[in-house]
Design a protein around this nucleic acid. Structure first.
Lengths: 239, 239
DNA sequence: ACCTGAACACCGTTCAAGT
DNA sequence: ACCTGAACACCGTTCAAGT
């Protein structure tokens, strides 16, 4: 054995003075905890113990919990930009670019539903940009693709608004339905399913009758149809 | 003087054995705190002190923080139903009903942006209902208005999905922009506006040039146009 | 019946101190 | 340079005890 064994029971993990702490190591571990157990499970103390370190050590690399969340969001949106920057040939037009970007962002929302609401947060450097996409580079790409394809400045800005309203709104909804409490207080698992309020399904006959239809998950179709619809709307406005 | 004066400095407020605690009094006070200072300001201890009582007293009326939030959501959605139930004459058709309901729910979102995300939470009695509106009575009304106006069961369910996806998505977005952190960790006031990341506005010339257009708030128009667009879509699908 | 004190197991964050 | 112990001011929740 190459290392002396410590006491049988240990906290959670010990650093063993192996890999030194770093901002990226902290971000990656935090991302893992949030994706697996939700935002509310991410505490400085828990994250420290997960990294084999006391919570106070984290403050060397991150100025606080808020800064940590900021770093998580940047990590996600940086990933967006690392994918090919001209994913579609110019000949495909802005429609193809919008389709590509919409699905790219949707993938992020689906991979990290707990974190996605933070992407809808205003950017510190451009708080007037609404709705925010939390990555200025992505927004810059969007706007320059449009203006390169002949959009006027005002039309490009209007299209940005229309597109991001649609996209962020839709994804916020999808994220909230993917078990993301959207607020930290919801219990993740409430196996206990007895109705708590006094209104039960007996008082709502139509809901009851339509249950088979209502319970179908159609979010994929809804997204695709709405996106096509949106592109049509933008095309109409151009003329 | 009718009451003996206590010590000069007191906690925050004292009950003075006046109005007894009750569920509604707790809900109303909690609503006030959340609307004024955000969800993160609502703690059992804070709420207790606001009511002149120790936090533990609240547990007589509310089973915990989770139950309290549940009560807040019910309070909001009950308000929806207390407005006239047939706000538009049947002759106006489902289009008028949808317009009315959309604006009704939007008012709730605007009055309580901090709480609105909880409305997008699945209903305990009908977790399969997606997207949720958090009031089964409102959903029942919606579906019966549609079926009364000649929609088939499947078409009514599809329209429910399309409509609530649009509505909740849009309002989740608007609420997140109304200073609702959408997650409890955002600071409410960051007067400190120096850019934190290394990317500044210099690297994004198009954003910079379009700033005057991009910073316009067009959420009202965006909402109205999208809603009309949606109604058109539903009409088309009916044929 | 209604409220509270004390306690437990958690938080984020600071700072002087250890290695 | 990097990590930690101890401390502070908070949490939610429980339960036996007070009135």
């Amino acid at each position: 054995m190459s290392h002396p064994s410590g006491p049988e029971v240990r906290a959670r993990r010990t650093n063993d003075a192996r890999v030194p702490l770093s901002r990226v190591r902290i971000v990656l571990e935090a991302l893992r905890v949030v994706d697996e157990e939700g935002l509310q499970a991410l505490s400085m103390r828990r994250l420290g113990s997960e990294l084999g370190v006391e919570a106070m050590s984290l403050y060397r690399y991150v100025s606080g919990r808020e800064d940590l969340l900021e770093a998580l969001v940047s990590h996600l949106t940086d990933g967006l930009r690392r994918t090919p920057q001209t994913p579609v040939s110019a000949a495909d037009g802005w429609q193809a670019y919008i389709q590509w970007l919409a699905h790219e962002v949707r993938d992020v929302a689906h991979d990290h539903p707990q974190l996605f609401p933070l992407v809808a947060t205003r950017h510190p450097a451009a708080p007037w940009l609404r709705p925010p996409l939390r990555s200025l580079e992505v927004v810059e790409d969007f706007l320059s693709v449009l203006t390169d394809q002949g959009f006027g400045d005002e039309a490009a800005a209007a299209t940005y608004r229309t597109f991001t309203s649609f996209l962020v709104g839709h994804l916020l909804l999808e994220a909230s339905q993917m078990g993301a409490p959207m607020v930290p207080d919801e219990p993740l698992d409430e196996g206990d399913d007895r109705p708590t309020s006094d209104v039960v399904l007996d008082d709502v006959p139509t809901i009851r009758r339509l249950e088979p239809f209502l319970s179908e998950d159609r979010s994929d179709e809804e997204f695709e149809v709405s996106l096509e619809e949106l592109i049509d709307r933008i095309e109409r406005q151009l003329r």
